[in-house]
Nucleic acid binder design. Structure first.
Lengths: 246, 246
DNA sequence: TTTTTTGGTTGACGTGGGTCAACGGGCGTG
DNA sequence: CACGCCCGTTGACCCACGTCAACCAAAAAA
């Protein structure tokens, strides 16, 4: 765990300048004076309980959200009931960018655990981007990173086999936990097998079997949501040399 | 076909204010005075011959591109040779947004036919976004739309069967041709079966078979790259009621 | 605590789409 | 205009993953 963040009363300013997520979040790379301006931008914080939604598809778009604590999934659903998890988000990551284009959200953002977000009113962000040099660039980078990430998921869904997908998923989670000061080898997944499956374009049974096979092969150790990567290099190798893939 | 665009010498300004793609492209929704400022932004034009690349993964990021004529595909590739087409782009659409995040491109943009793009230097765009009210918002919307589009592709790759994917692809192409003043019922695809397959996460044989089955069922008429949608409603129905899908 | 519900694992079996191969027609190149 | 290559089509076969079902553990509710 990291040093704890100074606690402010819910609804008060969040003080980006004092937040330890600064290097993962929107303010990354901004100067001290810019950071101070940014404190004006982040209005309130909002708590979202496990299983509750931060926003839903169709909600009018008003703000984007920076995750301060906890984690989320985003999913889109078709009329016929099918749904697709489009991403899992961790602390410091930005939610709600999909809403800008049509001024309403196109997916649901649901908390995987009790969580808290910083609310960034979009019109204020627009305004301040005109004034604060580094903010505009940083915001563009955040959006661009989302596009690049999505391309990675397409690659995964379009051209990898089940085990490769799961290996890529685990390595990605590991790297992100690590960037947040947690162990890269051992972590606790917050999503179910079904949610992982939806994200990876697989059924939960296939995900479960792949977990078991990885364990049998000594690559990982799993117990429910608790995962240990015993041989990360082995997992990487699995992705690179396709066994005769599509 | 639409009325032709006033021809300027290659390398001269492109004059957004006189371009008939205005309602599809970056300048959408901007005022006349803003449009005039925009003309400064678009420096040169660049021609790209069929099969040649506009940029490649790893190239330093300097500009984004608006397609003035022709069409492109973007693809990412893995070390082991596998590749994934992440999108097909038509006139008025913006290419290169992936490059902002890491200041270098992460995919290849390849012309599907002899094409021409407007080069928009990114540093100038940043600069002008500070000054021109509508430009910043419009640019954010373009990026956001790309994110939403990518989520749609994930949905397609993650939870649709082969025929549903192809139907969705055809309807999407139809709608985009239509928005550009071409027929929604009859059009000429510029990409190969293999490229369609890569985009849809299928093998070219599967794409070919799905085309044939659609033809047998009277939904479309295909001959090579020439496609006619005989029953668009039938195609839509196909997507909504999964036949027992994953 | 007990009960209930939800999430995860595993087995048996079926099938959609991948693989391999043959063939034919269009189109770009010379 | 003719050659050759690439592209698209189709068939036969196979396998990875989906489906269906039973069962168990963990967590939540009572």
């Amino acid at each position: 765990m990291r040093a704890s963040v100074p606690i402010t009363v819910n609804g008060l300013k969040s003080a980006c300048s004092q937040c330890n997520l600064v290097e993962l979040c929107l303010p990354f790379g901004m100067s001290d004076s810019e950071l101070n301006r940014l404190d004006e931008l982040v209005g309130a914080r909002r708590k979202v309980k496990r299983q509750q939604s931060l926003y839903r598809a169709g909600d009018p778009f008003e703000a984007i959200y920076a995750i301060r604590a906890g984690s989320f999934k985003t999913d889109v659903l078709l009329e016929d009931g099918r749904d697709q998890v489009t991403g899992f988000q961790m602390t410091g990551e930005i939610l709600g960018l999909d809403g800008i284009s049509a001024e309403s959200h196109t997916c649901n953002a649901i908390a995987l655990e009790d969580s808290e977000v910083c609310v960034i009113a979009y019109d204020k962000l627009e305004q301040m981007s005109h004034e604060v040099e580094g903010l505009q660039l940083q915001f563009h980078k955040v959006m661009s990173r989302e596009i690049v990430r999505d391309h990675g998921v397409m690659m995964l869904l379009g051209s990898m086999r089940a085990e490769e997908r799961l290996a890529a998923f685990l390595l990605n989670m590991s790297q992100r936990f690590n960037a947040r000061g947690f162990s890269a080898q051992e972590f606790h997944l917050r999503m179910t097998r079904e949610e992982i499956g939806s994200y990876l374009g697989l059924k939960l049974e296939t995900v479960s079997r792949a977990f078991s096979r990885f364990q049998d092969e000594g690559l990982i150790s799993v117990q429910q949501k608790h995962v240990q990567l015993l041989d990360p290099t082995g997992l990487k190798r699995l992705i690179q040399h396709q066994h005769g893939a599509r």
